[in-house]
Every structure is written in structure tokens, then in C-alpha cells.
Simulated scan of single mutants.
Amino acid sequence: MGLSVNGVDIDDHVIERELAHHQHAANPLKQSVHEVVLRTLLLQEADRLGLCMLGEDEDACIEALLASKVKVPQADDAACSRYYAANPQQFTNGELVEARHILFQVTPNAPLELLRETAESVLAALKAAPERFDELARQYSNCPSGAVGGSLGQLARGQCVPEFDAVVFRLEQGRLAERPVETRFGLHIVQVQRRVAGRLLPFEAVRERIADYLATAAWQRGVHQYLQLLVGRADVQGVTLEGAATPLVQ
């Protein structure tokens, strides 16, 4: 495919082998090419700096390079406290919602725009007459829950896809979401029927978890910035890297 990094050609077989690790990506080939290019850049830089010991595997070389080039400070109490105050939902145990939905599933025979028009029409009908939810769920929903009026029962945080979670745990009891919620499953009309308040864990109980999270996030940002630096000064032929994704060092 005419791919090279700093004058070193990348064989198509290398891309093919990498492809097996990215089958669930939005664009497996693009993700594989980017991963191979970034990994090659890291290995070239590690070799240039003399960080690859004889007989050492590639992952160890990359780890040595990143350890020498990416330095991040540990999160202090003030940073941890700010994160705790801004994200109380992450540290609340036992919070539940009882919700129901009407799913308009995207299929090859059901264009998204047509589904959106139908979902908006049904939502408007529900806003005018909320008591029709059970009836309309049975009539329109593509989810098995439609047979029981769209009921999903009690849900805990993280039980549903993030886009759905974000809505149901924000809605007030009895409220319909203002617009259909879009997820990979389709469009959902959502209503929260009941909320069960959780218990906020004390800061002392989660301070170490927050510090670990903030340190990891800082390290990932540092790696991203370092990769951007390497890409910026590299001669990469055959592909345009749109930013530098952080690779997973296996």
C-alpha cells in the first residue's frame, strides 16, 4: 500500500496482522494503519536513544521510551477534591432508576430520517397524553420490552450504554426525555417512572481511586502529546495521521 515511516517501508502483511486486533473499530483498516505507524515511530525513537536492549521485546522498548519521555505529576488532594465535587454520581452507591422506553430500531429497511420523524411524532403524542405510553410502546417499540409497555425495570448506573445512562440518570421522576435518545440500537423515547437515591461515599474512601484515575488520564494526555511531537517531525508516506491516538502498550 506504499506505506513508509522515516524511509522504512511497512509491509502489507504487518497491516494484515494488526487488522485482527481492530475488528470492532469504526474503520478497522484505518485504525490498523495508524497503530502500526505510531508503533513504528516509537520503536525507531527508542532505538535511536539506545533504549532497546539486545533481545528485549518491542513492548519493553516502547515502555522504556515512554517512561523516559512522559513525566506526569501525582494528583494532589486539591485536584482529587475538585474532581470528587464535580462528579458525585461516580461515587454514589445504590442509585437506581425505574425506566421505560420505546425503541425505534435502525435497520436497512428503515432509514434513520423516517425513524426520526416517527419517533418525534410518537413523542409529541406522549407529551400531549402521557398515559398512552403503555399503548404506544406495544404498538411501536422494536424492543421485547414493548410487550410490557416498554418497562426496563430497575437500572443501575453502567447497566445501559453511556448515552442512555446519561439521560435516565439525569431525568426527574415522571419526566419524559425532551427528545429521542440516539444510541447504537436506534432512537429511544425514554421516561423515568421512579428514582431511588443512592449514598454518596465519603471523599476519604475514594481519594486513592480518584488519584489513580487522574494520574492515568494525565499519563494518557502526555503520551498523546509526545506522539504528536513524533508525528510532527517524522516523514510518513502513504497515510495522513489525523492527530495521534494513544496506543495501548501490550
Rank of each mutant, 00 (worst) to 15 (best):
108 P>Y: 05
108 P>S: 15
109 N>A: 11
110 A>C: 04
110 A>P: 00
112 L>S: 03
112 L>W: 02
112 L>K: 03
112 L>C: 00
115 L>M: 11
116 R>S: 03
116 R>H: 03
116 R>C: 01
117 E>C: 01
118 T>S: 04
119 A>Y: 00
119 A>F: 01
120 E>L: 14
123 L>F: 02
123 L>Q: 06
126 L>T: 04
128 A>T: 06
128 A>P: 00
128 A>R: 07
129 A>H: 15
130 P>R: 01
130 P>M: 03
131 E>M: 13
132 R>V: 01
137 A>I: 02
137 A>L: 03
138 R>Q: 09
142 N>G: 13
142 N>D: 10
143 C>K: 15
143 C>H: 07
145 S>P: 01
147 A>P: 01
147 A>S: 14
147 A>D: 09
147 A>Y: 07
150 G>I: 14
150 G>F: 14
151 S>D: 08
153 G>K: 14
153 G>L: 13
153 G>T: 07
153 G>W: 11
157 R>M: 10
158 G>W: 07
160 C>G: 03
161 V>D: 09
162 P>W: 11
162 P>Q: 11
163 E>S: 15
164 F>E: 01
165 D>N: 12
165 D>H: 08
169 F>C: 06
169 F>L: 09
171 L>Q: 07
171 L>K: 12
172 E>H: 08
173 Q>I: 07
173 Q>K: 04
175 R>L: 15
176 L>G: 09
177 A>K: 06
179 R>W: 05
179 R>I: 07
179 R>N: 08
181 V>E: 11
182 E>W: 10
182 E>R: 10
184 R>P: 00
185 F>G: 08
186 G>N: 02
187 L>G: 00
188 H>E: 04
190 V>L: 15
190 V>W: 05
191 Q>R: 14
192 V>T: 14
193 Q>M: 12
193 Q>N: 12
195 R>Y: 05
195 R>D: 06
196 V>H: 12
196 V>Q: 13
196 V>R: 09
198 G>I: 03
199 R>H: 13
200 L>K: 15
201 L>I: 05
